[in-house]
Design a protein around this nucleic acid. Structure first.
Lengths: 251, 251
DNA sequence: GAGTGGTCTAGACCACGAA
DNA sequence: TCGTGGTCTAGACCACTCA
């Protein structure tokens, strides 16, 4: 609680880092409770004989973690853990698989140039006329089981040959960078719950009506023009998305 | 690109904020391209006649946005937008509805104390014996349409009367705080795709087999003991989860 | 007016990378 | 060895809150 020689000023570990960890643990242990004020920055600086700027840096860490909040003129207070707002992280499939040490592969079912139909013209905000679209259809498998089916569409403005690497694992931003004159800089994803159609079911080896995640991705260039679109389905019995919130242990 | 009287040192807007915005826009406009180095901190400080610490604060903003990354001894570089890793945010239902200006209400179907069965004992890591569990079953509706069905379970260690407010909109952390001696500080959520059972379908007014999101929540106390658990389903035809990544416009 | 957090400075020393 | 980013300081002034 007090007399903190708990900070080693000669350590290789930065002081602000040590202090942030110290306060974080005090909050977790309940020594500072939600709603209570932390000691003032000057108090903390004096107590540990460090500069106020260093204290502020530590507190900034805790603020960014959502653990405390500062009010000008009043003080710095312990926040209540927010357990309502949830952030789900859906990692890149390949990274996931590599991390878990699983064998995975991408199978190219189809790669062809098509003419934009009305739906695609709408997605890409294209005017009337003929527009060439590059269409990829791939299946992701792990441990010899098919897990996901992806349909990718990009506006085709360059006629470059497809590289081996693209056939193996074509990513939407990668395809755009290579086969169009657009620069992909941002993406919007929409996650929906769906059920397998007969065709999807037979490709993925599940029953028609089986639960699926559906992810629609739109990729934009710097002018917010949509330049790539994909619709992917993931087997609901093989995918789950997990999130951790509040004051979980970090490090 | 140069001669930056673009920073107003007498503005009420902090210098670090102005500078961060300036660099962010330069990157978005492509004046600094992915992989390229930004000017060094000292160069920027000299150019705009501000202190290096202020420059660093600006760059820290951009780093936290994932727009640039710094390498000690080398420089600060423009990142490539990461469009693979996706963060889905599922907001608190009530906030969502209020934000959209929709009428919503919570209907309590059931609220009773039960004895923990084997499944609940396992979820809560309870030893053999008799354990009382408080069970809530609620339906969320908006615009007179049922959207979601929630089952909440908490370990019941206090015998406090249920408050009106809890009956209207019982939250898992709120129930734990009021009706147990535990302090909820963190939560784990798992999102799955599912299909409606006959019972669920009739409650929600959809067809059996209709797509659903399933969210299982476990709430923990500071010692990582599970103290609350819920299983909620959301109509797949009414819910979607959206995310934005990369260098989208902020502000 | 006293006390709080918010911003900014000018300078110091360090760790690291590259030549 | 030099230039880079990383840390830290001691002090300044401001905006805000509350009595």
């Amino acid at each position: 609680m007090q007399e903190g020689n708990l900070i080693d000023k000669n350590s290789v570990i930065p002081i602000y880092y040590q202090l942030a960890k110290l306060i974080r643990e005090q909050i977790r242990r309940g020594e500072f409770k939600p709603g209570e004020a932390l000691p003032t920055e000057i108090e903390i600086a004096n107590r540990y004989e460090i500069s106020r700027m260093t204290v502020r840096r530590s507190i900034a860490e805790l603020v960014s973690e959502g653990m405390v909040y500062a009010l000008q003129g009043k003080g710095t207070f312990v926040a209540s853990p927010k357990l309502d707002n949830v952030v789900f992280e859906l990692n890149n499939f390949s990274h996931e698989m590599v991390q878990r040490g699983l064998n995975y592969k991408t199978t190219l079912l189809e790669a062809k140039i098509i003419r934009a139909d009305e739906e695609l013209k709408a997605k890409f905000l294209l005017k009337e006329g003929i527009h060439r679209i590059l269409h990829f259809r791939t299946v992701l498998s792990a441990e010899n089981e098919r897990l996901s089916l992806e349909n990718k569409y990009i506006i085709y403005t360059k006629s470059k040959p497809l590289l081996e690497s693209e056939l193996n694992d074509p990513t939407l931003p990668g395809l755009i960078a290579t086969h169009s004159d657009y620069v992909p800089v941002s993406a919007k994803k929409v996650l929906k719950a769906a059920v397998a159609t007969n065709e999807e079911a037979s490709i993925l080896g599940v029953s028609p009506g089986a639960p699926l995640f559906l992810v629609e991705t739109t990729v934009f260039d710097p002018d917010l023009k949509p330049v790539g679109w994909s619709k992917s389905i993931f087997r609901g019995d093989r995918y789950k998305i997990t999130s951790h919130d509040g004051w979980f242990q970090k490090e």
